[in-house]
Amino acid sequence: MAYRPFDLAGKVALVTGGNSGIGLGMAQALAEAGADVAIWGTNAAKNAEAVDALSATGVRVHTEICDVGDEAAVDRAFAATVATLGRVDACFANAGTYGRKGKFVELDSAEWHRVTRVNLDGAFYTLRAAARHMVERGGGGSLVGTASLAAIEGAARNTQYAATKGAMVAVVRALAVELARHGIRANAVLPGWIETSMTARSVGDEKFAGAVLPRIPARRWGTGADFGGLAVYLASDASAYHTGDCLVVDGGYSLY
Rank of each mutant, 00 (worst) to 15 (best):
T81R: 02
N158T: 09
N19G: 08
A48K: 13
T16S: 15
A9K: 14
D245T: 12
A162V: 02
A170T: 13
T223Y: 07
M134L: 13
L149T: 06
L14H: 04
Y3M: 14
W40P: 00
D52V: 11
G228Y: 01
N119W: 02
Y233F: 15
V51Q: 09
A240H: 11
V115P: 00
L149A: 05
K207A: 15
A176L: 11
Y161M: 06
I194K: 01
D75T: 14
S142K: 04
M134H: 06
T126L: 04
A48Y: 07
T164F: 00
A170G: 15
I152G: 07
G17Q: 06
Y98A: 14
V82L: 10
L8S: 10
T42W: 04
A123I: 08
P214T: 08
A238I: 08
L54T: 07
R219Y: 08
Y241I: 10
S20V: 00
L120K: 00
N19P: 01
A56S: 15
V74C: 08
G228H: 04
L54S: 08
T42E: 11
A123T: 15
A130P: 07
K207N: 13
D250C: 06
W193P: 02
L149W: 05
D67T: 12
C66I: 08
D89M: 08
A27P: 07
